[in-house]
Design a protein around this nucleic acid. Structure first.
Ligand SMILES: [Mn+2]
Ligand SMILES: [Mn+2]
Ligand SMILES: [Mn+2]
Ligand SMILES: [Mn+2]
Lengths: 219, 219
DNA sequence: TATTTTTTTTAGACAAATCTAAAACTTATA
DNA sequence: TATAAGTTTTAGATTTGTCTAAAAAAAATA
């Protein structure tokens, strides 16, 4: 069993490393975890001793396969609990993340396997992110963002990149939900904003900060 | 917000004090919490500073109304989660306690109120214990145990006093479940054991250790 | 390449929760 | 009521996870 802190660090490193592929900086981890860089150095030394990360002083850190497995298990729990909160307890998609941050650390394989079954073995969480299976295997996340499209392109919304309440509440407001069909009608070079047709809703113009955080499938 | 440790101490003190009515010894708390008495002294001083308990050195400790409110809120969460595990995830009544010990510390009023609603506002947990309401009010627990009855007496099982897996598995084995109707057929003075008729099951003889842990309503 | 800036690590401290051993206090008993 | 026994508290450590300030190393830049 690993501590709550260790689990959170591994999860942060996993996410920052682009799903375990790249090396991660101390400062980036510190920012993600909202701690001092010195604390990160300490924790990395500890994770390294336990073979959960590969580490050489001053050279950044990569997550080991053992560490990745633990991170993916925590992510699995996080996302299954988010599905539970939305599907069974009628939470909105912008209300689930903080609670899931707590629930993801509950230790019980029986619990999580039965929760999975109770939810009908969902493949995606309420934000469109794939749910790892019990072996720590996860479907790849598409990489096309709305910001990459051109006027005339049509797409379907797959996933929100950011799980902040601010983004999700805004997407609700402009009626962009998972699965929504969009058409890019105009691109404004001055600030990078996009004008869109949203199926079943009014046309809108949204900033590049928003389009960069919407993952889509081109149609 | 109080720490996991503080919550567990308050819960222990609440239970040991007979629902807040009596004073509790350091050693009793230490045994319940499986810690050294010295650790209990430290924690009591801390809880006392926060006005969660009333304390005079060497004189034992009583829980304050603020402390009782917190303890009952943790107990509420514990018991609601136990209902969830049994009703929604098909756990057996002897499998829920350890997981509920973790889940009871999740901090979210929204979560617990929606869980309560999702479960249909249950009044009792899977072991027959009453569930406190959101204001920290709790129904009294009956005090008649099976061990108090005499041959010829009939009763209905209300509640298991002990939540250990060992007791609960044993009760399953001899077909004593909540609501079961029993008739005392014989009392054996030598060891205090009882012979019983169990409605819909075979007659049995059980030890005083078991009869003392079954709360019943006489019929 | 030498210097400056940025990043990372180490040193030393702290709070929370625990421990063992010893001292202080209370209760029981001869 | 003196002494023994039991209970509780204090003293002093330890572990975990954090911090600030300073030192060390790497990267950027002049
Ligand atoms: Mn989330
Ligand atoms: Mn977390
Ligand atoms: Mn329980
Ligand atoms: Mn607990």
């Amino acid at each position: 069993m690993y501590s709550l802190s260790e689990e959170n660090y591994l999860k942060a490193i996993y996410h920052l490393s682009n799903n375990g592929e790249e090396s991660v900086n101390t400062n980036a981890i510190a920012e993600e975890m909202k701690t001092a860089p010195a604390s990160v150095s300490d924790m990395i030394r500890k994770l390294s001793k336990k073979k959960l990360v590969n580490y050489q002083k001053y050279r950044g850190v990569t997550i080991s396969s053992k560490g990745k497995y633990i991170a993916l298990n925590v992510i699995r729990k996080h996302r299954l609990w988010e599905v539970f909160l939305v599907e069974k307890l009628s939470f909105k998609w912008d209300e689930v993340h903080e609670v899931a941050e707590q629930l993801e650390h509950i230790q019980s394989n029986q619990l999580i396997e039965r929760l999975d079954e109770h939810l009908g073995f969902p493949k995606f969480d309420p934000h469109g992110d794939p749910i790892p299976n019990a072996n720590g295997e996860i479907a790849p996340i598409p990489t096309t963002t709305l910001s990459m499209l051109k006027p005339g392109d049509k797409c379907r919304v797959i996933c929100a990149k950011d799980s902040s309440s601010d983004l999700l509440v805004y997407l609700d407001k402009i009626k962009i939900s998972l699965g929504a069909r969009l058409e890019v009608t105009d691109f404004h070079a001055f600030d990078g904003s996009f004008s869109l047709e949203v199926e079943g809703a009014n046309p809108i113009t949204i900033s590049s900060k928003v389009t960069e955080n919407i993952i889509v499938e081109e149609l």
